[in-house]
Amino acid sequence: MNNTDLQVILDKYPDAQRDSLIPILQDIQEVQGYLSRENVIEVGKHLKLPASKIYGVATFYNQFTFLPQGEYHVQVCRGTACHVKGSAAVLDAIERELNIKAGQTTKDKLFSLEVVACIGACGLAPVISVNGEFHAGVNGDKVRKILKNYRKNHQEVKITNE
């Protein structure tokens, strides 16, 4: 995201006050996938809000992240139905497989992991979503295979491109 992208977003909110903070942050995250430090500071200047306040608001909501997302963004549903069906073990398996915690991105920037409260697909529980693609009735073994497949796909795409 370059400065003009940000300016386009900020221009949508002329004379904005602090009540426009969340919509602005949502717009930025939609374009960039995360909130960068520079953008937070620029939003602060636009709204005359200290960076600490913006950081405070943005960390309150799960939807905002300060890390660039991976190529594959994994969302693990931890809603009630998925919980009952064993999503805790699913999350644990993914964290071990990727060696990151929820909210983080792998060093190779391939995967990022997010915990969501409910994806709204309780019939498929426990469910994970990777870049919007749903995987139903998963368990530890299944998610390991799923992640391996994505990694393999990525490598194949890379080889073809080269």
């Binding site: 430090r37 937070v40 200290p50 960076a51 600490s52 306040k53 913006i54 950081y55 405070g56 960390t59 309150f60 909501y61 300060f66």
Partner: peptide
């Protein structure tokens, strides 16, 4: 008028800290 500090995070994990911790 400085606002170096604010509440970061939510619920049990809330902590008072600076921008970007």
């Amino acid at each position: 008028g400085v606002a170096a500090l604010d509440f970061i995070g939510r619920g049990c994990d809330t902590v008072v800290g600076t921008a970007f911790n």
